[in-house]
């Protein structure tokens, strides 16, 4: 053994010895994220919205389709459990808002998962394989990009009829394009790093390089994009519903509630106020979380 005295290294050695938990990049990012008040607050609020959306409709005295002639257009108030008021059919707005929250959040999450799975796989393969394959795959994305979303959805709706499942497919099928571009660009950057060459140099297989080297290093920006994609997709669903192409009665979503409320803005402003507030708060929360994650994962401000 001839471990030479490590003159300049020894300080770092001692430093490393003092902290006993290992500090991976993920852990460091986690710590920075937890220090971000806006992002942590947003998580709490989002959790509340999600939980109430799931559980309140189960216990609320009114169901979402319970029309009642006695209480048409009741303004918000404590009377008879119509806290958010009722609509033109006497249906309770509170339960409908939370029910709409279920649908909106579900659509936001599921479409993002669809976009994530397709986009990451497609982008990582294109970036990693490179060359002609990459060129061909990305030209295909460019072509799809040039199709307007609304046009695409109108085609789907006319061919398959209106169906909530179709909304998932349509949004997911469009949003994965951006995801695949991000992942491809990121993959190209990571692929040029020396550590990937060092993986080739020890004889690691292509699959293992993709799994251990490329994907973990590409994940940071993808996570940030995901948190920003969820609210985007909720909004897309809202305007589809607003245009009458999305969710249909008796199901409802925030977008549909807002579009119905917009027609009665003068006589019953609460019909648009509550769903719009929930939608806006959700948007803000996701955006704060996205910003927080970006700051936490960005190594530059370390």
């Amino acid at each position: 053994m001839s471990a030479r005295p490590d003159l300049l290294g020894s300080e770092a050695l001692a430093q490393a010895a003092r902290g006993d938990v290992s500090r991976s990049l993920w852990r460091q990012a986690g710590r920075r994220f937890r220090r971000n008040r806006a992002a942590m607050g947003s998580i709490v609020i989002l959790a509340l919205i999600a939980l109430t959306s799931i559980f309140v409709p189960m216990f609320w005295p009114h169901g979402i389709e319970d029309a009642s002639w006695e209480s048409i257009m009741t303004p918000p108030g404590l009377a008879d459990w119509h806290w958010f008021g009722t609509d033109a059919n006497g249906r309770d707005l509170l339960v409908r808002t939370f029910y709409g929250g279920r649908i909106s959040l579900t659509i936001g999450l599921l479409t993002t998962v669809v976009a994530l799975v397709i986009g990451v796989t497609y982008g990582a393969v294109a970036g990693f394989v490179g060359g002609r394959t990459d060129g061909f795959m990305m030209r295909f994305v460019d072509v799809l990009y040039s199709l307007p979303l609304i046009f695409f959805i109108i085609i789907l709706v006319t061919v398959f009829g209106r169906n909530i499942f179709l909304v998932f497919v349509a949004i997911g099928a469009v949003e994965w394009l951006t995801m695949s571009r991000i992942v491809r660009g990121q993959t190209l950057t990571v692929k040029a790093k020396e550590y990937v060459e060092s993986a080739v140099a020890i004889g690691l297989s292509q699959g293992a390089i993709l799994r251990r080297y490329i994907i973990p290093n590409v994940l940071g920006p993808v996570i940030v994009y995901v948190t920003l994609l969820i609210p985007t997709n909720i909004i897309v669903e809202s305007y589809l519903s607003f245009l009458g192409l999305g969710v249909q009665e008796p199901l409802t979503s925030w977008g549909l509630l807002i579009s119905q409320g917009a027609g009665q803005l003068d006589s019953a402003p609460w019909l648009i106020f509550f769903p719009a507030t929930f939608l806006a708060v959700t948007m803000f929360c996701f955006n704060f979380i996205g910003d927080g994650l970006r700051d936490a994962l960005d190594p530059r401000d370390r």
Partner: peptide, 30 residues
Amino acid sequence: KRCRKDLQIIFQDPLSSLNPRMTIGEIVAE
């Protein structure tokens, strides 16, 4: 790939030639 067991390389930039998402133990054991 089989020959790479016997033929190795050390790169110039020490930090960027190590995968930031792997521990030292994993890097050396690979």
